[in-house]
Simulated scan of single mutants.
Amino acid sequence: MIGVIDTEGDCAEWTFPAEPGAVRAARAAVRDRLRGWGLDSLADVTALLVSELVTNALRHATGPIGVRLSRPTAPLGVLLVEVSDSLPDPPHALAPHPDDEGGRGLQLVASSSRAWGTRPGTGGKTVWFELAVPG
């Protein structure tokens, strides 16, 4: 992990180097923070989706990868998760053949989240998704 910013408040933010260990480190950081916030029920799905987006960033971009969580402020709010990288081009959801080994990450994000999208950022893009907080 290159850096950590404010993991105690309503946001947690990390920067990971563009190397294979980033996926494991991002999953662990996300799980740990969600448990710290009392959002254990979202830890596994959030870690899985972050893992998919960090893996995409490793495959297609260069440079550090940012991960940011924003805790819901209302009891029935949403958890906002963002993964940023240096590639300005938005990702494209593929329609992989049943025998393909990859290409399902964005489909998984889309089907498992309340909403998702991309936005341009300084020197790259951010892919975000929202998860409903169980009541």
Rank of each mutant, 00 (worst) to 15 (best):
E82I: 06
S111H: 07
R119N: 07
L53Y: 01
L58C: 03
R71Y: 05
P120Q: 13
H97V: 11
R104L: 06
T118K: 00
L106I: 07
I65N: 00
L58W: 00
P96R: 10
G63H: 06
D89A: 11
P90Y: 02
R68E: 11
E52R: 02
V109D: 03
V81R: 03
L53E: 02
S84Q: 04
P90C: 02
D85R: 04
R71W: 05
R114W: 07
A57H: 10
G102W: 02
H97A: 12
L69A: 00
D85N: 06
L94H: 11
S70K: 11
V83Y: 07
A74Y: 05
R104F: 08
S51M: 12
P72E: 12
A61D: 04
D100F: 14
W116G: 00
G117Q: 02
A93T: 08
Q107N: 13
L106H: 03
A95N: 08
S112H: 04
L108A: 07
V78E: 14
T73L: 01
A95Q: 15
P90L: 11
N56E: 10
P72H: 08
W116E: 01
V81A: 04
V81H: 05
G117K: 02
G103Y: 09
A57G: 05
T55P: 02
T122D: 15
G105Y: 04
P75Y: 08
S70F: 14
S113G: 10
L69Y: 04
P64I: 01
E52H: 04
L79N: 03
P75L: 13
V81I: 15
R68S: 03
S84M: 11
T73G: 09
W116R: 01
D89H: 10
L106D: 03
L108V: 10
R114P: 02
V78T: 13
G124F: 08
S51A: 15
A93W: 00
P72N: 15
V109T: 01
G66K: 02
P98A: 08
D89V: 15
G77A: 13
G66Y: 05
N56F: 06
G102N: 03
G105L: 05
G102L: 06
V109I: 06
H92L: 14
E52L: 01
V109Y: 10
I65E: 01
P120M: 12
H92K: 11
P96L: 07
P72L: 11
G102F: 12
L94F: 08
P90S: 09
D100V: 12
R68F: 00
D100W: 15
I65R: 00
A110H: 12
T62R: 14
R104A: 12
S112D: 00
V83A: 05
S70D: 08
E101N: 13
G121F: 10
V54L: 01
S111R: 07
T122L: 11
V83Q: 03
Q107G: 13
R59W: 01
L53W: 03
G77S: 08
P72Q: 15
Q107A: 14
R71H: 02
T55C: 11
H97E: 13
A95M: 14
G105P: 03
P120H: 12
R68M: 09
P75E: 05
S86G: 10
A95E: 14
A57R: 06
S112C: 15
S86Y: 09
T62D: 15
S70E: 13
L80V: 09
V109Q: 01
